[in-house]
Design a protein around this nucleic acid. Structure first.
Lengths: 214, 214
DNA sequence: CGTCCGTCCGACCGTTCGGTAGATTCGCCC
DNA sequence: GGGCGAATCTACCGAACGGTCGGACGGACG
């Protein structure tokens, strides 16, 4: 059978579009180039997506959905708050490491890359407030130190995104090449430690020992 | 004298281009739109800049130079390492708060927004290693806890950039409108506290008390 | 007054872009 | 095998883009 639609033309288009979108942004993405890389005629793109913007939305939504699902699983899993925070950070770092392109696109989206459309990202907002709520519950239970939960989460998101998408330009020597397992672990350890230090009490009363397993 | 070049047409072009570049990115910036906003004919742009890319470089370089100068002053100033770190963070936050457009452009640049040109940003690299070196000196003197200096600086840069450029989309309620003084202070205090917690020793032997003035 | 120069303008050019129209191929089901 | 719809093709379109050209304006200077 193995026709040209081996894995579904639509999905191949989405893959190529994701890469192109990550590298060049919405305005830089060229439809003829995508068609070329997929091995298809440009007009055929419009059979699957009504317009360039719809294609963009499709890529964006798919990335957001998968990210939200993955992190929701961690939040809703069993475990102490302390463990869950660590797992959450690690899952997020892994996700960004596996899909740096997706992260770039989300960063660009939040920079306002797409014309005429600022809504969306509702999933991301929901996710953010879920994590923040989880943290503040831990704070009420005196498990976490009283740092601003929203600020902490936003900061971590920005930090991790920056490590994988932008930092290679600033510190190519420090960051390995994309996907380098050693540097991923280095980043993961660093972020986990920062979060730990932000959430533990200054006198090590509670958190340090339990989170020290990192 | 007050000709049409009241404040220098070239500078007005740079201003408008900076705003446009921040909002739309390199590929999204349209020369005719810039000319329109400046109140000038599109052809006149080419009298001051040979090409779109040269205009972009001019905006980029100007922003980088000023940022580097400002932070260098703080690094080279008098003061204990502890105070200087806090001043450095505050100066950086202020700089981003005053020039969010510039920060957006730098973020976009590090995302690879400009065609055919990855070098540059040498100034940023120099600045980064200068700050990292400063921190590691403090660590050798046992003033700072032994956290990875490069990772810390990169993380702070990403965090702050994210707060001002991207977070408003994710948490519009949390972040005030751009330039809101209250939220700037909130962000500043948060970042300073994160850095403090990352650099202080777990047992509060040294750093906490001295930095607690924040 | 003439002319020189920095500044700016109106009109235009070649290319490329996103998008459309219509024909053709291919697999499938009756 | 004949009809049908999905998928893909070739060919084309209007608009918008970055960029060029030659000239008009106006002050400075001799």
């Amino acid at each position: 059978m193995r026709t040209s639609a081996e894995r579904g033309t639509r999905e191949r288009i989405l893959e190529v579009a994701e890469a192109s979108l990550a590298d060049d942004g919405y305005h830089g993405m060229r439809l003829h180039r995508i068609a070329e890389r997929v091995g298809i005629q440009k007009a055929s793109l419009f059979h699957y997506f009504p317009s360039k913007e719809h294609l963009y939305r499709a890529v964006l939504d798919e990335g957001l959905d998968e990210t939200e699902q993955t992190l929701r699983q961690v939040i809703d899993a069993e475990g102490t708050p302390l463990e869950k925070i660590r797992l959450l950070v690690e899952a997020y770092v892994d996700m960004v490491a596996v899909h740096p392109g997706r992260t770039k696109i989300l960063l660009r989206q939040s920079l306002g890359d797409v014309p005429s459309g600022d809504q969306q990202t509702l999933g991301a907002q929901r996710l953010l407030s879920a994590v923040a709520k989880f943290i503040s519950e831990g704070q009420r239970a005196q498990i976490f130190a009283p740092i601003d939960p929203v600020a902490l989460v936003l900061g971590v998101v920005g930090m991790v995104a920056f490590f994988f998408t932008s930092a290679p330009v600033l510190a190519p020597a420090w960051c390995g090449h994309e996907g380098n397992a050693t540097s991923i672990n280095k980043i993961k350890r660093h972020v986990v430690e920062v979060v730990r230090r932000c959430l533990e009490f200054g006198d090590h009363r509670v958190a340090a020992a339990k989170l020290a397993t990192v």
